[in-house]
Amino acid sequence: MNTSMHINKTYKLYIDGKFSRTESGRYMKWVNPNNDQTINFCRSSRKDYRNAVQSSRNAFNKWNNFSGYNRGQILYRIAEMLDSRKEQFISELMVQGKSKKQSKQEVSMSIDRLVYYAGWSDKFQQIFSRVNPVSTPHYNFSTPEPSGVVSIIAPKDSYLLGFISVIVPAIIGGNTVVVLASENNPLCAISFSEVLHSSDVPNGVINILSGFTNELIDHFSSHMDVNTVINCGLDLKDTELIQKNSAVNIKRVINYGAIDWMNHDSQDPYFIMDCQEIKTTWHPIGY
């Protein structure tokens, strides 16, 4: 026998470090254009989102207390794991309509991006901190601190690189995230959860959902336990809804319009700063 049975994979959510099905029992169909095979992705509900936020909230203290250096090491580990699964992601990108050349380039840029931000992990804080001149006898200094739980609507059209480019700056700064994968093509994001699972990322630091954007943006932006919402390329009406909902508990709202994630300019430490709050401390000086 040299033919093995083909095993159809069940694509699941990634919540609290577990691969779980949606509690709603609903699915969304995705048809592979190459062989007309149908794949079912979980169509996440508001409760899946709630569970994910709860998990992120629980993970936040632990993750934030890791040293930047340690977070960097873990990020580097993610890069290693992605590298060892290169072929899988290249073929998935091709299934989703990219050419072989494009796919290869996107995967290798994704790995580079992880390593790029891993390098920033123990550096951004000193670079963006400052001592402020004041006229009273105080040391007055400002440092960035993670905002907390970040909800992310990932880019629709950059299934792997865009996805990584928005979650990584958030987590390297000590935040924990709940991310909604590209609605049309969630395949890479869901597979990426397997990479995360083998990378020493504590449970709950990254939670990945698949589902319909218009069903979920309301909840993504209205949950009171979320501190930042990142919106990638939603239209004006949806953006307005996010901003309105976010006003209730003054969430940060970050809008990334049309960013070409394949461009090297789309990686810089300011993406880390998007999910940071500046804390200013007045410390009395003794004479």
């Binding site: 709630r50 936020v53 009171m224 336990d225």
Partner: peptide, 9 residues
């Protein structure tokens, strides 16, 4: 209110 709450409040 319809939205999930935070223990912060």
């Amino acid at each position: 209110q319809g939205n999930y709450q935070s223990s912060n409040y």
